[in-house]
Nucleic acid binder design. Structure first.
Lengths: 262, 262
DNA sequence: CGTAGCCTTGACCGCCCTCAAATTATGTGG
DNA sequence: CCACATAATTTGAGGGCGGTCAAGGCTACG
């Protein structure tokens, strides 16, 4: 189940107690459906709740003069979309759905209450934000210094890795419920050029994207072409330090116990 | 003093007790000097401490094949440069100095200890991370969708606003201890084109950058040209909710007391 | 079967890159 | 204070990646 994938992700950083896990799962109990291309958060809104994507794709984006759109993040199942609801007051980028989306809303107060009560959870959320930040910086690289081919390859690698982490890949393929225009908005390319680039990827036998379906023919080649190194996503197990829970002894899984307070 | 500017910035989000302020100030007591163009953190390092920039400029960057460099953030006096030291384990982007830099090192354990002890401080740090993330997303916009002129204008606006916030501007001017090549690496442009763009900015009577000195002739015009809207930097006073300190009554400064747990 | 949205293809153009060299700061030792 | 070396800025010429505009072909779905 997707909520568990999210919790599991938080636990990459810090072990949660069964109680904390239950609280989180309860907070995500009520699901809601949205059609494709609807607005989840408008720019400048005061976010009243955070949303956990259960199915479908959404994106964080900014509109620019001349009906251009820059997507700054794809939000896929298992992503929490806006943590910042509980911290900042008023967001500066809009969030919208790309496909039909099911999501769980976590009210601002619930999230605040949870994190305020358990520092471990707050730290895990903070960690989550840091990963999002690292991903954003990787995107700066992508649109800044890579060619259209490398850019597209990189995006595909990232999405495939993230979808794999939540169990939404089938062998070397996955569903990407987005249009070429959506890709264009994320890659800072024109839809026309995205199309040409996709054909080139196909010609190079690296990957095929058709009918919202991505098939990777040569993962190593695709990663090479995109200069993709997955470290920034922090999807793998450690190298993350376990954080001892204040007031408790380190959980039994600690094979590397820090000498410091960390 | 710069440390106070940093603390003041954290306090935009949550009031700290005099005790917490003192702890932070103590943690920043020992200063260190680095020459220009030295490495502060190497990619893949396990960060042993966070650094507060006291003077000079540094940057977060990634090297790309072919001795190209993408700068993903400028770090100026009053910036904390790597909070993530206390959270993530091993950073994915290097940090280096652009000019000679003075900095205070806050050991990983100290930062962990401080944040673990006082949730307010942890939340403030989290907030700080969220602002950095928002800034990174703004940079995606910048390199993705804006022309060289707009890009450069936007960067100048951002730097001027941030320097102003820490008292490092003089009327309509400030020092930027960077070369045109450094700007190029941040803007994802070639040094040659940066030069041409700077001349155009001068010709348009918007801004002049010479001898590491930026003079803004027409702030409104520059912001217009760059599509700059400073909200994402969160430099202004509120609209930020005060967070009641758990176990204490809200400090006397609360003219807006939230009804929720936030 | 028709319509709307999406994808595909072609022709042309411009922003910005590359390469190369001249000119001007910056700094160092004599 | 000058001679020299190094780094930074400026200027020129030519080319390519990707944008824009426009039309035609699919697909999906009612």
């Amino acid at each position: 189940m997707i909520v568990d994938a999210f919790i599991q992700r938080l636990e990459r950083f810090a072990a949660l107690t069964p109680d904390e896990r239950r609280s989180l799962r309860n907070a995500c109990a009520t699901a809601r459906s949205l059609p494709a291309r609807s607005e989840l958060l408008r720019e400048g809104d005061r976010a009243e709740s955070a949303h956990l994507i259960l199915s479908g794709f959404a994106c964080r984006y900014t509109m620019l003069p001349g009906r251009r759109r820059q997507i700054t993040a794809y939000l896929i199942p298992g992503d929490l979309c806006d943590v910042r609801a509980s911290v900042l007051d008023g967001i500066d980028q809009a969030v919208g759905t790309l496909s039909p989306v099911e999501l769980a809303s976590i009210p601002r107060e619930t999230l605040s209450w949870l994190t305020e009560r358990t520092p471990t959870l707050m730290r895990a959320m903070w960690w989550y934000t840091l990963v999002e930040e690292a991903t954003a910086r990787e995107w700066i690289l992508n649109v800044g210094h890579r060619t259209a081919l490398a850019r597209t390859a990189h995006l595909f690698c990232e999405l495939f890795a993230r979808l794999h982490a939540v169990g939404l890949t089938h062998q070397n393929a996955c569903e990407l419920p987005v249009t070429q225009a959506d890709l264009a908005d994320a890659l800072a390319l024109s839809p026309v050029h995205v199309n040409r680039t996709l054909m080139k990827l196909r010609a190079l036998k690296l990957a095929t994207f058709r009918h919202q379906h991505l098939t990777i023919h040569d993962l190593a080649g695709l990663q090479e072409a995109g200069g993709f190194r997955p470290g920034y996503l922090r999807l793998t197990a450690p190298p993350f330090a376990d954080v001892p829970r204040p007031g408790t002894t380190p959980a039994g899984r600690g094979d590397r116990v820090e000498t410091s307070m960390m």
